[in-house]
């Protein structure tokens, strides 16, 4: 569905993406995980026509983003990291302009707006100005708008950044629901739990390069199954073990502050990139 080959992006002398290649299968929920500045938004901007690439190529549902951008864009919905709504227009007007840009008929626009505003729980406010919405509501409106023309691929750039835990869970539920309806989802995040909870596969991105790409489980298994955190004189040390017994054996050696726990995606990220995500 999404094919990226050796994608490169230069901002002047600075290399933001340094040869990224990956494929996302139809219906997959793919998470692009990396710290701030890794190049996540840049990738989405290139794929959705907001920025030009400097090298490599990409196709969306078979349409090349460079030679056939209009066909490529027709299949995509995108929710950017920052709010990009018309704050002086109503929710319905925002949805309607989007529908017109994608060539939807008047009847479809009305029906789809009603359906989606219900879907993201904003139906009661449909005639209000966007400027009256809270941050979480704006985010949900952006998701509804991106779904307006029934895209086969949905790009979500840090969809829950800056939202509190409860709204984050609610948006996660919404994202799962969208995937279950058959949409391919490309999601970026720097929240480990988000990738772990949602993704079929995860790519670790760091300084414009892919460090690893696999299912969350497989990535964790590369590190081990159990982790033993121990407080030492130089700070926290973590050791990884293939099973609980070997980890348990290590615990008895030490009496200081320590935790024995299952390996999580953060361990995998740390080990495979040598960095923390946040």
């Amino acid at each position: 569905m999404i094919v990226i080959e050796n994608l490169r992006k230069q901002y002047g002398a600075f290399t933001a993406l340094d040869g990224v290649s990956l494929r996302v299968a139809p219906g997959e929920l793919f998470a692009y995980l990396g710290p701030n500045g890794a190049g996540k938004s840049t990738t989405i901007k290139i794929l959705t026509g907001l920025t030009r690439l400097s090298g490599g190529s990409a196709t969306l549902g078979g349409a090349d983003i460079q030679t056939d951008p209009i066909a490529a864009k027709r299949q995509c919905g995108v929710v950017m990291q920052h709010i990009n709504l018309d704050s002086d227009l109503t929710l319905v007007e925002n949805m309607d302009i989007h529908g017109r840009l994608f060539g939807m008929s008047a009847a479809d626009r009305v029906a789809r707006t009603e359906e989606l505003l219900g879907y993201v729980d904003l139906y009661d406010r449909k005639e209000k100005l966007v400027s009256t919405l809270s941050g979480g509501m704006k985010r949900r409106l952006m998701i509804a708008r991106a779904l307006m023309h029934n895209p086969s691929i949905l790009f979500l750039d840090e969809p829950t950044v800056g939202l509190d835990a409860e709204i984050r869970r609610r948006i996660w539920g919404l994202i799962k629901k969208i995937q279950n309806a058959g949409t391919t989802i490309f999601l970026t995040t720097h929240y480990i739990e988000e990738a772990e909870f949602l993704a079929d596969r995860v790519a670790f991105l760091d300084e414009g390069r892919l460090r690893a790409l696999d299912t969350p489980l497989a990535l964790m298994h590369r590190v081990g199954a159990w982790a033993f955190d121990r407080l030492t004189e130089d700070g926290m040390k973590t050791e990884y073990f293939p099973d609980r017994d070997s980890a348990q054996a290590a615990v008895t050696l030490d009496a200081g502050g320590h935790t024995l726990r299952r390996v999580n995606l953060e361990d995998a990220f740390l080990t495979l990139t040598g960095k923390t995500v946040v």
């Binding site: 990009n84 302009i97 840009l101």
Partner: peptide
């Protein structure tokens, strides 16, 4: 960005 990412 809405115009940039729209098929127009």
């Amino acid at each position: 960005e809405e115009f940039q990412s729209a098929p127009i």
